[in-house]
Computed example of a mutant assay.
Amino acid sequence: MAFADDELDARLAIRVRHAVDNDDDIRAKLEVFLSTRTLLSRAFDAVLREPIPDRLEQIVRSGVKRRRNRRAKP
Protein backbone atom coordinates (compact mmCIF):
# COMPACT_ATOMS: atom_id res chain seq x y z
CA MET A 1 0.00 0.00 0.00
CA ALA A 2 2.85 2.38 0.76
CA PHE A 3 4.15 1.83 -2.76
CA ALA A 4 0.73 2.61 -4.25
CA ASP A 5 0.65 5.82 -2.18
CA ASP A 6 4.21 6.85 -3.18
CA GLU A 7 5.32 6.68 0.45
CA LEU A 8 8.43 4.53 0.02
CA ASP A 9 11.95 5.85 -0.15
CA ALA A 10 13.45 5.72 -3.62
CA ARG A 11 15.60 2.65 -2.99
CA LEU A 12 12.74 0.50 -1.72
CA ALA A 13 10.37 1.84 -4.39
CA ILE A 14 12.77 0.59 -7.08
CA ARG A 15 12.79 -2.88 -5.52
CA VAL A 16 9.01 -2.99 -5.27
CA ARG A 17 8.63 -1.70 -8.85
CA HIS A 18 10.89 -4.54 -10.01
CA ALA A 19 8.74 -7.05 -8.12
CA VAL A 20 5.54 -5.57 -9.59
CA ASP A 21 6.97 -5.72 -13.09
CA ASN A 22 8.00 -9.36 -12.69
CA ASP A 23 5.23 -10.97 -10.65
CA ASP A 24 1.61 -11.17 -11.79
CA ASP A 25 0.30 -11.77 -8.25
CA ILE A 26 2.07 -8.70 -6.89
CA ARG A 27 0.86 -6.66 -9.86
CA ALA A 28 -2.72 -7.77 -9.18
CA LYS A 29 -2.45 -6.75 -5.51
CA LEU A 30 -1.10 -3.35 -6.52
CA GLU A 31 -4.02 -2.87 -8.90
CA VAL A 32 -6.43 -3.61 -6.04
CA PHE A 33 -4.67 -1.05 -3.83
CA LEU A 34 -4.77 1.57 -6.59
CA SER A 35 -8.45 1.05 -7.33
CA THR A 36 -9.31 1.03 -3.62
CA ARG A 37 -7.41 4.29 -3.11
CA THR A 38 -9.39 5.89 -5.92
CA LEU A 39 -12.72 4.69 -4.53
CA LEU A 40 -11.90 5.80 -0.99
CA SER A 41 -10.64 9.13 -2.20
CA ARG A 42 -13.89 9.81 -4.02
CA ALA A 43 -15.93 8.70 -1.03
CA PHE A 44 -14.10 10.74 1.62
CA ASP A 45 -12.47 13.74 -0.04
CA ALA A 46 -15.34 16.09 0.73
CA VAL A 47 -15.52 14.98 4.36
CA LEU A 48 -11.77 15.35 4.81
CA ARG A 49 -11.93 18.95 3.60
CA GLU A 50 -14.54 19.88 6.19
CA PRO A 51 -13.30 21.82 9.22
CA ILE A 52 -12.65 19.86 12.39
CA PRO A 53 -15.51 20.41 14.85
CA ASP A 54 -14.46 22.69 17.72
CA ARG A 55 -15.49 20.16 20.38
CA LEU A 56 -13.38 17.40 18.82
CA GLU A 57 -10.38 19.71 18.54
CA GLN A 58 -10.72 20.69 22.21
CA ILE A 59 -10.86 17.05 23.29
CA VAL A 60 -7.75 16.16 21.31
CA ARG A 61 -5.79 19.20 22.47
CA SER A 62 -6.65 18.60 26.12
CA GLY A 63 -5.55 14.98 25.80
CA VAL A 64 -2.24 16.03 24.25
CA LYS A 65 -1.72 18.61 26.99
CA ARG A 66 -2.39 16.03 29.75
CA ARG A 67 0.01 13.59 28.16
CA ARG A 68 2.77 16.21 27.90
CA ASN A 69 2.23 17.18 31.52
CA ARG A 70 2.57 13.55 32.63
CA ARG A 71 5.81 13.18 30.70
CA ALA A 72 7.23 16.39 32.14
CA LYS A 73 6.81 15.17 35.74
CA PRO A 74 9.80 13.26 37.13
Rank of each mutant, 00 (worst) to 15 (best):
M1S: 14
M1Q: 13
A2W: 13
F3I: 01
A4F: 06
A4L: 10
A4H: 02
D5M: 06
D5E: 00
D5C: 14
D6C: 08
D6Q: 06
D6M: 09
E7R: 08
A10S: 08
A10V: 04
R11T: 01
R11A: 12
R11W: 07
A13W: 04
A13F: 02
A13D: 10
R15T: 12
R17S: 06
R17Y: 13
H18E: 15
H18M: 15
H18Y: 09
A19C: 07
A19W: 06
A19E: 07
V20R: 06
V20T: 02
D21R: 01
D21H: 04
D21Q: 10
N22R: 00
N22H: 01
N22L: 00
D23A: 03
D24S: 12
D24W: 10
D24A: 15
D25K: 11
D25S: 04
I26Y: 12
R27T: 10
R27E: 15
A28I: 13
A28P: 00
A28K: 00
A28S: 08
A28R: 03
K29V: 04
K29E: 13
K29W: 06
K29G: 05
L30Q: 07
E31T: 06
E31Q: 08
E31W: 00
E31F: 06
E31D: 11
V32E: 01
L34A: 12
L34N: 09
S35F: 01
S35M: 05
T36I: 14
R37Q: 14
T38S: 10
L39N: 01
L39R: 12
L40F: 08
R42H: 15
R42M: 15
A43N: 11
A43I: 05
A43E: 13
F44T: 02
D45P: 00
D45G: 03
A46S: 13
V47Q: 13
V47Y: 01
V47P: 05
R49K: 07
E50R: 09
E50W: 02
P51F: 02
P51M: 09
P51T: 14
I52R: 01
I52M: 07
I52S: 08
D54A: 13
D54S: 15
R55A: 04
R55M: 02
L56Y: 09
L56G: 07
E57M: 05
Q58L: 04
Q58E: 15
Q58C: 02
V60K: 14
V60N: 05
V60Q: 00
R61S: 11
R61G: 10
G63R: 10
G63H: 10
K65T: 11
R67M: 08
N69L: 08
R70E: 14
A72W: 01
A72E: 01
K73E: 08
P74W: 15
P74D: 13
P74L: 12
